[in-house]
Design a protein around this nucleic acid. Structure first.
Length: 195
DNA sequence: AACAACCTCAACCGCATCAGA
DNA sequence: GTCTGATGCGGTTGAGGTTGT
Protein backbone atom coordinates (compact mmCIF):
# COMPACT_ATOMS: atom_id res chain seq x y z
CA UNK A 1 0.00 0.00 0.00
CA UNK A 2 1.40 3.41 -0.98
CA UNK A 3 1.66 6.30 1.49
CA UNK A 4 -1.06 8.09 -0.42
CA UNK A 5 -3.46 5.16 -0.08
CA UNK A 6 -2.59 4.74 3.56
CA UNK A 7 -3.36 8.39 4.27
CA UNK A 8 -6.70 8.22 2.51
CA UNK A 9 -7.63 5.08 4.45
CA UNK A 10 -6.70 6.77 7.72
CA UNK A 11 -8.92 9.72 6.82
CA UNK A 12 -11.84 7.42 6.10
CA UNK A 13 -11.41 5.47 9.32
CA UNK A 14 -11.28 8.78 11.20
CA UNK A 15 -14.59 9.81 9.62
CA UNK A 16 -16.23 6.63 10.82
CA UNK A 17 -14.74 6.80 14.30
CA UNK A 18 -15.73 10.43 14.72
CA UNK A 19 -19.26 9.68 13.54
CA UNK A 20 -19.21 11.86 10.47
CA UNK A 21 -22.20 9.94 9.18
CA UNK A 22 -24.64 12.51 10.40
CA UNK A 23 -28.12 11.04 10.75
CA UNK A 24 -29.80 14.45 10.71
CA UNK A 25 -28.08 15.14 7.40
CA UNK A 26 -29.36 11.85 6.00
CA UNK A 27 -32.90 12.72 7.05
CA UNK A 28 -32.59 16.16 5.47
CA UNK A 29 -31.70 14.46 2.18
CA UNK A 30 -34.90 12.45 2.24
CA UNK A 31 -33.33 9.36 3.77
CA UNK A 32 -30.51 9.25 1.25
CA UNK A 33 -26.94 9.65 2.41
CA UNK A 34 -24.83 11.96 0.26
CA UNK A 35 -21.25 13.09 0.30
CA UNK A 36 -18.01 11.33 1.09
CA UNK A 37 -18.04 7.57 1.50
CA UNK A 38 -16.80 5.99 4.71
CA UNK A 39 -14.62 2.89 4.96
CA UNK A 40 -17.57 1.06 6.45
CA UNK A 41 -19.80 1.87 3.48
CA UNK A 42 -17.04 0.85 1.08
CA UNK A 43 -16.69 -2.46 2.83
CA UNK A 44 -20.44 -3.16 2.77
CA UNK A 45 -20.68 -2.25 -0.89
CA UNK A 46 -17.70 -4.39 -1.87
CA UNK A 47 -19.10 -7.36 0.04
CA UNK A 48 -22.49 -7.18 -1.67
CA UNK A 49 -20.90 -6.78 -5.10
CA UNK A 50 -18.65 -9.78 -4.42
CA UNK A 51 -21.76 -11.87 -3.79
CA UNK A 52 -24.27 -10.48 -6.29
CA UNK A 53 -22.08 -8.94 -8.96
CA UNK A 54 -21.90 -5.34 -10.19
CA UNK A 55 -25.39 -4.91 -11.60
CA UNK A 56 -28.83 -3.76 -10.42
CA UNK A 57 -27.32 -0.97 -8.39
CA UNK A 58 -30.51 -0.01 -6.65
CA UNK A 59 -30.87 -3.46 -5.15
CA UNK A 60 -27.15 -3.55 -4.32
CA UNK A 61 -27.60 -0.35 -2.33
CA UNK A 62 -30.56 -1.89 -0.53
CA UNK A 63 -28.83 -5.22 0.11
CA UNK A 64 -25.78 -3.47 1.50
CA UNK A 65 -28.04 -1.51 3.83
CA UNK A 66 -26.64 1.75 2.51
CA UNK A 67 -28.72 4.90 2.46
CA UNK A 68 -27.31 5.63 -0.96
CA UNK A 69 -28.87 5.75 -4.39
CA UNK A 70 -27.83 3.13 -6.94
CA UNK A 71 -26.06 5.70 -9.04
CA UNK A 72 -23.86 6.70 -6.16
CA UNK A 73 -22.94 3.05 -5.48
CA UNK A 74 -22.11 2.45 -9.12
CA UNK A 75 -19.89 5.50 -9.26
CA UNK A 76 -18.11 4.56 -6.06
CA UNK A 77 -17.44 1.07 -7.36
CA UNK A 78 -16.28 2.14 -10.79
CA UNK A 79 -14.08 5.00 -9.67
CA UNK A 80 -12.71 3.73 -6.43
CA UNK A 81 -13.43 0.19 -5.26
CA UNK A 82 -13.14 -1.79 -8.48
CA UNK A 83 -10.07 -4.06 -8.55
CA UNK A 84 -7.05 -3.18 -10.73
CA UNK A 85 -7.60 0.55 -10.41
CA UNK A 86 -4.42 2.56 -10.79
CA UNK A 87 -4.38 5.67 -8.66
CA UNK A 88 -2.37 8.85 -9.08
CA UNK A 89 0.81 9.47 -11.09
CA UNK A 90 -0.27 9.47 -14.69
CA UNK A 91 2.83 8.49 -16.63
CA UNK A 92 4.25 10.47 -19.56
CA UNK A 93 3.16 7.69 -21.88
CA UNK A 94 -0.39 7.82 -20.54
CA UNK A 95 -0.47 11.59 -20.74
CA UNK A 96 0.67 11.49 -24.32
CA UNK A 97 -2.00 8.95 -25.11
CA UNK A 98 -4.68 11.07 -23.45
CA UNK A 99 -3.63 14.08 -25.48
CA UNK A 100 -3.73 12.17 -28.73
CA UNK A 101 -7.01 10.49 -27.98
CA UNK A 102 -8.58 13.75 -26.90
CA UNK A 103 -7.48 15.31 -30.15
CA UNK A 104 -9.20 12.49 -31.95
CA UNK A 105 -12.32 12.03 -29.83
CA UNK A 106 -12.89 15.21 -27.88
CA UNK A 107 -14.43 14.91 -24.43
CA UNK A 108 -15.46 11.28 -24.77
CA UNK A 109 -13.84 10.36 -21.51
CA UNK A 110 -15.15 6.86 -21.22
CA UNK A 111 -13.74 5.96 -24.62
CA UNK A 112 -10.41 7.49 -23.71
CA UNK A 113 -10.41 5.68 -20.36
CA UNK A 114 -11.11 2.46 -22.22
CA UNK A 115 -7.66 2.70 -23.76
CA UNK A 116 -5.92 3.32 -20.44
CA UNK A 117 -6.08 0.16 -18.34
CA UNK A 118 -6.82 0.83 -14.70
CA UNK A 119 -7.85 4.44 -15.29
CA UNK A 120 -11.37 5.73 -14.89
CA UNK A 121 -13.19 8.25 -17.05
CA UNK A 122 -13.62 10.48 -14.01
CA UNK A 123 -9.89 10.44 -13.29
CA UNK A 124 -9.00 11.26 -16.86
CA UNK A 125 -11.59 14.01 -17.00
CA UNK A 126 -10.21 15.50 -13.80
CA UNK A 127 -6.65 15.17 -15.05
CA UNK A 128 -7.58 16.86 -18.27
CA UNK A 129 -9.39 19.71 -16.57
CA UNK A 130 -6.67 20.37 -14.02
CA UNK A 131 -3.50 19.68 -16.03
CA UNK A 132 -3.87 19.13 -19.72
CA UNK A 133 -6.42 21.79 -20.65
CA UNK A 134 -4.06 24.42 -19.30
CA UNK A 135 -1.18 22.85 -21.15
CA UNK A 136 -3.20 22.89 -24.34
CA UNK A 137 -4.17 26.52 -23.82
CA UNK A 138 -0.56 27.50 -23.32
CA UNK A 139 0.42 25.57 -26.41
CA UNK A 140 -2.24 27.13 -28.60
CA UNK A 141 -1.33 30.55 -27.24
CA UNK A 142 2.28 29.94 -28.28
CA UNK A 143 1.19 28.80 -31.69
CA UNK A 144 -1.06 31.82 -32.06
CA UNK A 145 1.87 34.11 -31.33
CA UNK A 146 4.06 32.21 -33.75
CA UNK A 147 1.30 32.51 -36.31
CA UNK A 148 1.27 36.30 -35.99
CA UNK A 149 5.00 36.50 -36.69
CA UNK A 150 4.71 34.37 -39.75
CA UNK A 151 1.70 36.18 -41.11
CA UNK A 152 3.83 38.13 -43.57
CA UNK A 153 4.88 35.06 -45.57
CA UNK A 154 1.68 33.14 -45.35
CA UNK A 155 -0.22 34.63 -48.25
CA UNK A 156 1.10 32.16 -50.79
CA UNK A 157 1.05 29.28 -48.32
CA UNK A 158 -2.60 30.04 -47.55
CA UNK A 159 -3.86 28.46 -50.75
CA UNK A 160 -1.82 25.36 -50.08
CA UNK A 161 -3.13 24.89 -46.52
CA UNK A 162 -6.74 25.47 -47.43
CA UNK A 163 -6.34 22.68 -49.95
CA UNK A 164 -4.81 20.50 -47.21
CA UNK A 165 -7.68 21.31 -44.85
CA UNK A 166 -10.17 20.32 -47.47
CA UNK A 167 -8.39 17.06 -48.02
CA UNK A 168 -8.22 16.27 -44.32
CA UNK A 169 -11.87 17.09 -43.82
CA UNK A 170 -12.64 14.53 -46.49
CA UNK A 171 -10.84 12.00 -44.35
CA UNK A 172 -13.87 11.16 -42.26
CA UNK A 173 -14.18 8.08 -40.17
CA UNK A 174 -16.75 6.69 -37.83
CA UNK A 175 -15.24 7.07 -34.40
CA UNK A 176 -17.61 4.55 -32.87
CA UNK A 177 -16.59 1.93 -35.38
CA UNK A 178 -12.98 2.79 -34.91
CA UNK A 179 -13.34 2.32 -31.17
CA UNK A 180 -15.09 -0.97 -31.08
CA UNK A 181 -12.87 -2.62 -28.46
CA UNK A 182 -14.98 -5.66 -27.85
CA UNK A 183 -12.36 -8.11 -29.10
CA UNK A 184 -9.29 -6.51 -27.65
CA UNK A 185 -7.07 -6.98 -24.67
CA UNK A 186 -6.12 -4.10 -22.39
CA UNK A 187 -2.66 -3.42 -23.84
CA UNK A 188 -1.56 -0.19 -25.39
CA UNK A 189 -0.01 -1.79 -28.43
CA UNK A 190 -3.03 -1.24 -30.61
CA UNK A 191 -3.09 2.46 -29.94
CA UNK A 192 0.62 3.04 -30.35
CA UNK A 193 0.45 1.22 -33.69
CA UNK A 194 -2.53 3.25 -34.72
CA UNK A 195 -1.05 6.57 -33.72
C1' DA B 1 0.74 32.48 12.28
C1' DA B 2 -3.18 33.83 9.58
C1' DC B 3 -5.49 34.45 5.68
C1' DA B 4 -6.56 34.31 0.73
C1' DA B 5 -6.13 32.26 -3.58
C1' DC B 6 -5.63 28.39 -6.06
C1' DC B 7 -5.68 23.35 -7.08
C1' DT B 8 -7.26 18.62 -6.97
C1' DC B 9 -10.45 15.14 -7.10
C1' DA B 10 -14.51 12.60 -5.21
C1' DA B 11 -19.12 12.91 -5.73
C1' DC B 12 -23.44 14.77 -7.46
C1' DC B 13 -26.68 16.17 -11.15
C1' DG B 14 -29.15 16.12 -15.35
C1' DC B 15 -29.71 14.20 -19.57
C1' DA B 16 -29.42 10.44 -23.06
C1' DT B 17 -29.73 5.81 -24.12
C1' DC B 18 -30.85 1.07 -23.39
C1' DA B 19 -33.61 -2.92 -22.13
C1' DG B 20 -37.49 -5.22 -20.62
C1' DA B 21 -42.45 -5.39 -19.78
C1' DG C 1 -45.02 1.36 -30.33
C1' DT C 2 -44.68 3.15 -25.75
C1' DC C 3 -43.78 3.40 -21.02
C1' DT C 4 -40.68 2.89 -17.17
C1' DG C 5 -36.72 1.83 -14.58
C1' DA C 6 -31.76 1.03 -14.94
C1' DT C 7 -27.49 2.39 -16.57
C1' DG C 8 -23.91 5.31 -18.65
C1' DC C 9 -21.88 9.63 -19.66
C1' DG C 10 -20.12 14.36 -19.40
C1' DG C 11 -20.44 18.69 -16.92
C1' DT C 12 -20.23 20.81 -12.58
C1' DT C 13 -19.67 21.53 -7.68
C1' DG C 14 -17.61 21.84 -3.27
C1' DA C 15 -14.62 20.09 0.49
C1' DG C 16 -10.18 19.64 1.74
C1' DG C 17 -5.41 20.35 0.83
C1' DT C 18 -1.51 23.24 -0.74
C1' DT C 19 0.89 27.36 -1.82
C1' DG C 20 1.76 32.19 -1.72
C1' DT C 21 1.66 36.61 0.69
Amino acid sequence: MTEEEEESLKRKVKQVVEGDINEAEILRNGGVNKGAWTAEEDQKLAQVIAIHGAKRWKSIAAKAGLNRCGKSCRLRWLNYLRPNIKRGNISDQEEDLILRLHKLLGNRWSLIAGRLPGRTDNEIKNYWNSHLSKKMNQQSEKERRKGCKRKVNTESREEETSQERENSSNLEYDVDNLFDFSNEGPDLEWMSNFL
